[in-house]
């Protein structure tokens, strides 16, 4: 096996493919390159990016287009949250499947962000139960980045957390950034980025480890119109690739883009 094939297989494994299947896909890919008499990297591009591409192409089929539904990625049953005597959430039920986009809407202070943090596992519910897929990406409303690090260094850091080698993490991050029409500049610390660009960084960091479920908390703040549309296009391509997406929003015209709307109502 060449270096490309083993890198490809390693990346498939890291993305959660069963070992037997990963080996099989790696062997087939090697054989495909051989029948074209081409080197794998000239035919398919970098191994880690092609692994992501192939999986998203294959997952598209896993979510049937008409009628039938994908597997459940997130299920909340009767979830409630109290801070001392103040009830923030009460009896929330929500099911999100692969290939679906769910929006959480509601007035300011109704617990939208708290609910999203419960989905992520960063806040504990006081009642009810949560079932969730293991691979999850969380994009908070603000913060969540280090002011003095550049975008590339963030890719390295978050990649390392997910077990990716630095160079691979950087090239994956730059690839994902390009899809949001953003080319990160070297040597510019995050604190000097505009609010919209920082949100793009936040999105890329949430997606870097190819999670099955994406949790986004009003992620488009500071986006201009073009980027806003890029963002929704990105959400749809995640959906088409069989991922589940939960978006917290307060913009009503966002709702045309989603499959479910969960209204938390007025502030409690």
């Amino acid at each position: 096996m060449t270096g490309w094939d083993s890198r490809f297989e390693t990346e498939l494994l890291r993305l959660g493919v069963q070992p037997g299947r990963a080996r099989q896909l790696a062997e087939e890919t090697a054989q495909q390159a051989a029948e074209c008499a081409a080197a794998p990297d000239s035919l398919f591009g970098p191994a880690h990016l092609y692994a992501r591409h192939l999986l998203s192409e294959l997952k598209t089929a896993a979510v049937p287009l008409g009628g039938a539904k994908g597997p459940v990625r997130l299920r909340l049953t009767g979830v409630g949250k109290r801070y001392r005597r103040r009830t923030v959430l009460d009896g929330v039920n929500l099911t999100v499947r692969a290939g679906e986009v769910a929006a959480i809407v509601g007035a300011n202070g109704c617990g939208k962000s708290t609910l999203l943090r419960i989905c992520a596992g960063l806040t504990r519910p006081t009642s009810g139960s949560v079932q969730r897929t293991r691979r999850v990406g969380f994009v908070p409303q603000d913060a969540g980045t280090a002011d003095w690090l550049t975008a590339d260094e963030h890719f390295t850091l978050f990649g390392a957390a997910a077990g990716m080698a630095p160079r691979r993490a950087r090239s994956t991050g730059e690839h994902l950034a390009a899809r949001l029409a953003w080319r990160p500049t070297k040597s510019q610390p995050t604190q000097h980025l505009s609010g919209g660009t920082r949100q793009k960084l936040n999105l890329v960091l949430g997606e870097l480890h190819a999670p099955d479920l994406l949790l986004l908390d009003e992620p488009y703040q500071g986006f201009d119109q073009g980027t806003y549309l890029d963002f929704w296009q990105q959400v749809h391509s995640w959906r088409d690739a069989g991922r589940a997406v939960v978006v917290v929003t307060h913009l009503l015209h966002d709702l045309q883009h989603v499959d479910h709307v969960h209204d938390l109502g007025a502030a409690q």
Binding site: L25, E28, T29, Q32, A33, E35, C36, A38, L43, F44, G45, Y50, H53, L54, E57, L58, T60, A61
Partner: peptide, 25 residues
């Protein structure tokens, strides 16, 4: 490009629309 063609073939195989068999060349 190969990066478009081969995933599509694998997808057809996975959906049971095409059946693979190994042949010599």
């Amino acid at each position: 490009p190969g990066g478009t063609l081969y995933p599509a073939l694998l997808r057809l195989e996975q959906q049971g629309l095409a059946e693979p068999s190994w042949g010599p060349s």
